[in-house]
Nucleic acid binder design. Structure first.
Lengths: 129, 129
DNA sequence: GAGCGCCTGAGAACCATTGTCAACTCTGGT
DNA sequence: ACCAGAGTTGACAATGGTTCTCAGGCGCTC
C-alpha cells in the first residue's frame, strides 16, 4: 500500500515548483536549505516511486547522474541541448510504431524503448560569420 | 602528443572484434582473460581517447554504466532482450530522418541521437497457456 | 645511447546510488 | 480512542563504476 507522507509530498512539491531536470541530490539539498529535513535515502525512494508512477521522467547525464522532471503522462522523448541543457519534449507516433513493428518482426514482445536526441539549440549556436 | 602503444592497440582491437556496446569493465576483463594485462585506468583512458577521436560511440545504460562501441560507418540501433541480453541490430532510416527533422524544427543543429529498444525475445517468452 | 615527456598501472579516492535496520507513523479494526 | 501491523523513514554503511595520484616505464627524437 502506498501511503502519502510529509516527505513524499515535499519531494513532489519541489518538482511542482521547478522547471526542467533536477537530480535527487539537488532536491535533497533544496529541501535541506528550506528547513525541510528529509533523508537522502527517502528522496531517492520518493523520486523513484514518482518515476515508477509515471509522474516524473528520468534521463541520465553524460556523467551518469540521474535527472528527474515532472512530465506529462503521455509518452514522449527529449530533445536536449548539449550546451545549455535546455530540453524540449517531442512526441513521435512514427517512432513508437516503428519500434513496435521492428521488435515484432524479430519476435520480441513487451516492447519498450528509449530515445534521446541531442543537438545544439539556436541560442547556444555561435553565429559563425 | 598521442603515442601509439600496445595497450591502446589492444583496446582498439577489442572493439574491432566485438559487435555492439561494451563497457570499459568488460573490455578490461576480456583483455585480462586473454592474457593481455592492461590496467583498468588505462582501459578507461584509452576508451575515452577513442571516443574523443570519434572512433567510438558511447551511451549510458539505465544503471549509469557507460557503454562504447565502434562507430560503424553505418548507423543503426539495438533491439535488446531484457531476459537473455541477445541483441539484434536494426537500421531505421525513418527514425533518423524523423529525429533530424524534429530537431531542426526546434532550431537544433549538429544533431545526434540514441535509441535502444527493449523487449522479450521469442526464446525467453514463457508460452502462457 | 641519452634525455625528455607522455604513458602506464596499482591502489586510493570519489561520488551517486542502494542496502540495512531499528525506530517511527499512518491506517483500519475494535 | 486504542492497538496492532505494515509501510516509511533516516542515519550510516556498503557498493560499484569512474577518476585521480604518482612513481616507474617506455617511445620518440637527437
Amino acid at each position: 500500500m502506498v501511503r502519502p507522507t510529509r516527505q513524499r509530498a515535499a519531494v513532489a512539491a519541489v518538482f511542482d515548483e521547478l522547471e526542467g531536470f533536477h537530480s535527487a541530490q539537488e532536491v535533497h539539498a533544496r529541501l535541506r536549505t528550506a528547513g525541510d529535513t528529509v533523508g537522502l535515502s527517502t528522496v531517492y525512494r520518493a523520486v523513484q516511486a514518482l518515476a515508477d508512477d509515471g509522474e516524473l521522467d528520468s534521463i541520465r547525464t553524460d556523467s551518469g547522474e540521474a535527472l528527474y522532471r515532472r512530465c506529462s503522462t503521455q509518452h514522449h522523448h527529449h530533445l536536449v541541448c548539449r550546451s545549455c541543457g535546455r530540453t524540449v519534449e517531442v512526441a513521435g507516433p512514427t517512432v513508437e510504431q516503428w519500434a513496435d513493428r521492428v521488435a515484432g518482426e524479430h519476435g520480441f514482445a513487451d516492447v519498450s524503448h528509449t530515445l534521446e536526441i541531442f543537438g545544439t539549440c539556436a541560442d547556444c549556436r555561435v553565429p559563425t560569420p
